[in-house]
Amino acid sequence: MGEWIKSIMPNVAKYSSKFWDSVGATFQMFAIAGVIAFIVGLLFGIVLVVTRKGGVCQNAVVYRIVDIITNFFRSIPFLILLIFLIPLTRRVVGTAIGVKGAIVPLVFGTVPFFTRQVEAALHNVDEGKIEAARSMGSGPVGIIFRVYLHEAVPELARVTTITAISLIGFTTMAGAVGAGGIGSFAIDYGQSQNHQDIVVVCVILLVLITFIFQGIGSFVAKKTTNRSLIKSIKSNSNHKKEK
């Protein structure tokens, strides 16, 4: 196996420890920035939905602020954002390079995107359900958790998947400015040194990650939508009939 890899991907084999380090770094960036962005984006998305006009905690000022911040950061291309945020990153984490330095721009790049997706997902929850919850005495907290988040789970799974895939893309871009990870590895050891096999392996790896995310996301979304529950019940009863 080792011999075979050496023969078709000599450079990957040569730099294999560097390769695994870069995979680890990407994973680290993805996990840390992902968790933070998920929490913050979810929070912002909820805030936008409940404070908008006619929302359960209508508040024009809060809505406006979150809305503007979200729009502002969403309109900056990620590569520019990376540079723009360097001073802030230095102040917050002490350095603007490496995995640590990448977290801040990754969060800033992902949160606005995710916020809008969450907002749309929650917005899709039928107004009537919220009204029914209100008529039963639920307050804002009850409505957020028991209606909005509860009913939007499949949709949230879908948008989380999309966001996760775009975050992977961002981590590789952050690599271009020295964040480490698969992106850096592909540039520094692949492209710069003309090692095509390294670039190919990096691409395959990224495609694989994307497919896996997509698969998990679709699975969760399907399992949590009860339309599919019906299908599974129906097919079960069909099986029974056949027996």
Partner: peptide, 24 residues
Amino acid sequence: GKKLSEARRGIGMIFQHFNLLDRS
């Protein structure tokens, strides 16, 4: 607040489109 929630629990309501939670 709480008083309103209490009051609403004493008044049931049904709707044209039922407004049930689809995932429950």
